[in-house]
Design a protein around this nucleic acid. Structure first.
Lengths: 279, 279
DNA sequence: CGAATCTTTGAACTGAGTCAATTAAAGTGG
DNA sequence: CCACTTTAATTGACTCAGTTCAAAGATTCG
């Protein structure tokens, strides 16, 4: 799924100094829209930028001018409190676009910090819109990115809604695994690029609780943890757990299941079934 | 802020039967982009649709074809679980656009249910994109809506991250008040269109907890509750409470405040100051 | 007017937050 | 390259806020 052919002069994502550019075709491929590439997008190029671990790519409140497509490394998207408390809104990995909350706004509503040395493709919004009129692929990219971002944040809300912290962690692991798998990586062996504290902020729990939940899941044989390497052992069990909204399912809720199960739920069930194919 | 002039034949939002249309200029005004209206947008019209209380405007999993601008009434945006558990992702009121999570996707990721009899302007996406090439206002509308939706969901994540349920409820009330005030309504006297259960789902707590938090806030003199009418009495105190991440502020966090307070935080402080001007 | 839903309140239990202390890892600088 | 500092992660003990269960009013709707 990662592109084998790298036209123009993108030195294959990971290694690229200042001044290096990358074609719009590359950007589209990285984003997952290979079918939108063509002669027109080969002609267009965007600048790339390196960001060192711990540095900010986007600062909250900054004027909104550019979007950033992550080509290497990873980021956390954060919103900072009046009191300096840092709420993690999302983790961005290869193929994700950062800065969409600024669309149509004058300023960025959230910042982005590199979790490790990273590389991004800089997409100037003004150019994107101007060129989008003649190159539909760019318009498709923008709309796709916006819709996906809204949907992804909805998933995160769902994730945070689980009252049990163990369930939250399980859902997080599965969400992360699914995204890794979509990039062609292993969906079983995960390298967590963020600290436990970041995960905790993202999930809305204390960082000690994340630790405890991970060790609990490990004891149950669902996963195997060593430092930041997590291996998903029993996907079946993880899914079982993740589905439970609260500790153990109550009879009432079980009764609801049969009656309320809608077409939407069935579609989701089909999607969920794919989890077992994480390789 | 609500438009006084209603061209074409929109019978002023609330009352409008089937077949009624509304001009793009009206839609732009309702959305809050009055400055984007012009002769071109006066020429364009969109169909309007009534939705009875309790009925679905959008069903999860449905093919994505249209966006909906709420012109009257209100909606809850929901995502349904495999087990039929309904997670409320957002409440949409006048001026909000529903369905943005489908942008660039083939299907809607979440549904929308009317909380009371409501009216929406139907915006066919294909038309919107086609006309957007010649009428920039429509493009602006779309991008503005997408960016605002992403930002709003970020706010919701922040809201849900508060570990104390009382804080969550306080934040919710202030968020709701701010939105009402932005529409020109009173930001002090609120008519809650949703059930406690809906609020609870939105906040990620038990519905009993919402009840208790409201009565607690009422006892403290912050608010006054009678059925679904809530009056914000002591905005100062509510803001004080809302800022606190956890029950009472710890010394450590207080120490962080001074050092970590960034430019972003200062901008936010300025925004927050506006809360007192809720009228 | 009755049925259903919504809302509030009470009581008991427990999960998760806080505090604290230990171990492990990752930078830093001589 | 190794002591040294700093930050990250784990684990334990304690407490309390919030969930769950239950039951009684209030409100809405047919």
């Amino acid at each position: 799924m990662t592109c084998p052919t790298a036209p123009v002069n993108a030195t294959n994502g990971t290694a690229c100094g200042a001044g290096v550019r990358c074609s719009a075709s590359d950007a589209l491929r990285w984003f997952g829209l290979s079918d939108q590439t063509g002669p027109a997008t080969d002609q267009i190029s965007f600048p790339m930028r390196r960001v060192r671990a711990g540095r900010s790519l986007v600062v909250e409140g900054q004027p909104f001018e550019k979007l950033h497509l992550v080509s290497g490394g990873s980021f956390k998207c954060v919103q900072t409190d009046l009191d300096g408390y840092e709420q993690v809104l999302a983790f961005a990995i290869h193929g994700d676009i950062i800065g969409l909350d600024g669309l149509g706004q004058t300023r960025h509503g959230s910042g982005a910090v590199a979790l490790e040395d990273a590389t991004v493709v800089t997409l100037p919004v003004a150019d994107l819109l101007a060129m989008g009129r003649h190159v539909p692929a760019l318009e498709v990219l923008l709309h796709n990115a916006a819709g996906a971002e809204v949907a992804r944040r909805g998933d995160t809300q769902y994730l945070m809604s689980a009252p049990s912290s163990e369930v939250r962690v399980a859902r997080f692991l599965l969400q992360f695994a699914r995204r890794q798998a979509a990039l062609g990586h292993s969906g079983r062996r995960l390298r967590m690029c963020m600290t436990r504290r970041d995960i905790a902020s993202y999930l809305g729990v204390a960082h000690e609780t994340v630790s405890r939940a991970l060790t609990a899941l490990a004891h149950d044989g669902c996963i195997q943890v060593s430092h930041r390497d997590i291996e998903l052992i029993d996907l079946e069990a993880l899914n079982e757990l993740q589905r439970v909204t609260r500790g153990r399912q109550t009879r009432e809720r079980r009764a609801d299941t049969a009656s309320k199960a809608t077409a939407a739920a069935l579609i989701k069930a089909a999607e969920a079934a794919q989890v077992s194919t994480l390789q």
